[in-house]
Amino acid sequence: MRGGLVVQAGWEDQFVEYFGARAQPLRRLAYALCGDWHTAEDLVQLTFVRLYRRWSGIREESIDAYARQVLVNAFLTHRRARRRESLMADPPERAAGASDPTDGLAVRRLLADLAPRQRAAVVLRYLEDLPVAEVAALLDISEGTVKSQTARGLRSMRGTFDGAALTKE
């Protein structure tokens, strides 16, 4: 008994063990989605709070999928809330990207410019290496939409990179 509550033996230990094993991978996923370590920490913390609340009802074989679902939903909600952008007469000059598209900083910059769903689709497909069907389930969209969002996101990233590479010369 803890603080007047009867605690079911073992489930909290399972949760603590899961947290220890999956916190870092979820932080990396959150960072890939949002591009900011502080926001990533907030998203992961929110994910684990929601997991804790539902822990006893989650099937063991689907915990990772559920955690990713919660994290992606938290990211998309966060992005919608931050959508208020200010207009400027002259946009600021953008720093030229690195010459190598596989450079982590260049990839993060390119991901940051994508729409939230495109970014989520690209990150889940290529950084998390999830199949189209699982990404569709996570984002609650059709498999065709996953494919088109991913293709548009990649096309946009390639176009931005090519444009940045051309302006550097």
Rank of each mutant, 00 (worst) to 15 (best):
L46N: 14
E17D: 11
Y66C: 10
A151K: 12
R54H: 14
S142H: 12
F15M: 15
E143A: 08
R125G: 00
L43E: 06
T77K: 11
A136K: 00
A137F: 07
V16P: 02
A136N: 01
S86M: 09
P101C: 11
I63N: 00
L5G: 12
L138P: 03
A32Q: 14
R82N: 09
A30Q: 04
R109K: 13
S148K: 15
Y18I: 00
A115E: 15
T102L: 14
D100S: 08
S148A: 12
A164N: 06
A30K: 00
P25F: 01
P25K: 00
A40W: 00
H38I: 02
E60P: 04
V123I: 09
C34W: 04
E143P: 08
F19W: 13
K168D: 10
G104Y: 09
V146Y: 01
F15T: 03
Q8N: 11
E128L: 05
S148Q: 15
L43C: 04
G104W: 05
L76V: 03
L51A: 11
V72W: 00
V107I: 13
P92H: 10
M1N: 15
T160H: 11
L43M: 09
Q45H: 12
V49N: 12
R94Y: 06
W11A: 11
R28S: 13
A151G: 05
P92L: 08
